[in-house]
């Protein structure tokens, strides 16, 4: 302490300072010391962390991947409705974990006409935002070729969404799935912006971001994702790349596949057969 005369004002100021900040300082110091003694957040062990506590499942044994054979898709949209039922996705035409696009090349036009089940015309055809079916459009045009393309989260190897998440609420698991921790997401929607594929959306009820999980609660129990389960034509293929006999391994071995927007460097893990340059 400086050896100066202590005026009353100084004393009063010191009291105010000591009572307010002194206690905070002391409290903070005690708390910091105390919490430092607690076991801190776990760090991945050098020998590799164990698998999360999922019954009868070791994520080190699996590397999941998804295939889409667009040549087989009939645009029935059973996948879209099944996904909404399985994952309790909002029942409107603006929130989808998976969706189906239709590309129609009309004679004499350079660019395809594209619509999805969310298009107002198709919603009008189904009569409700809760049911989906493609309207029989383009009957009057001369159509050169047309096809459907199912879309979903690409579960990228270098996911832009995970890169931009400020908290670590979205992450890539060891078995190759990009998940969202709904109890940790702050709802900033930066990931929605960052996803080049439009796969993410904001859940207005839970106030967090939502997207396809490849039905992680199903695949860890040995089941197929709901959309694959209900696809009546085998246009959706799912499996484990570690298993050489799995549908996806065979699909990748037998086909030359494309991924969407490879130039973004995200390295998607949904592989397409039978798409076209205009599919992005």
């Amino acid at each position: 302490m400086d050896d100066e005369t202590s005026a009353d004002e100084v004393q009063a100021g010191r009291r105010a300072f000591l009572t307010c900040f002194g206690s905070a300082l002391a409290g903070g110091a005690v708390a910091a010391t105390a919490t430092a003694l607690l076991p801190g957040p776990a760090r991945a062990a050098a020998g590799g962390a164990p698998s999360p506590a999922i019954p009868d499942y070791d994520w080190k044994q699996h590397q999941w991947a998804f295939g889409v054979d667009a040549r087989k898709c009939i645009g029935c949209l059973r996948c879209v409705e099944a996904c909404k039922a399985e994952n309790e996705v909002a029942l409107d035409a603006h929130h989808f974990r998976t969706w189906v696009e239709r590309y129609v090349y009309v004679e004499g036009e350079d660019a395809p006409r594209i619509d999805s089940q969310a298009d107002p015309v198709n919603i009008a055809a189904s009569g409700s935002e809760q049911h989906y079916r493609f309207a029989n459009r383009y009957q009057d045009q001369k159509v050169e070729r047309a096809f459907f393309v199912p879309k979903l989260c690409n579960h990228c190897t270098h996911p832009a969404c995970v890169q931009v998440c400020p908290t670590g609420a979205t992450f890539k698991t060891d078995d190759g799935v990009v998940l969202i921790d709904h109890t940790y997401c702050i709802g900033c929607q930066y990931c929605v912006q960052a996803c080049p594929y439009g796969a993410r959306f904001f859940n207005v009820e839970k106030k967090v971001t939502e997207k396809c999980t490849w039905c992680y609660h199903r695949i860890t129990k040995g089941l197929l994702p709901a959309c694959v389960e209900v696809c009546p034509t085998g246009a959706r293929i799912f499996g484990d790349r570690r298993d050489k006999q799995s549908p996806i391994s065979r699909f990748l071995a037998e086909n030359r596949v494309d991924v969407l927007k490879p130039e973004t460097g995200n390295a998607p893990n949904v592989f397409y057969v039978g798409i076209d340059k205009d599919v992005r």
Binding site: A42, A44, A49, P52, A53, I54, Y57, W59, G168, A169, T170, F171, K172, T173, D174, L179, D181, T183, Y184, T213, Y216, H217, T220, K221
Partner: peptide, 13 residues
């Protein structure tokens, strides 16, 4: 397991 809540994986599953 990485920069996220490890328990979240089993919770989602």
């Amino acid at each position: 397991y990485g920069h996220y809540r490890g328990n979240a994986v089993a919770e989602i599953a």
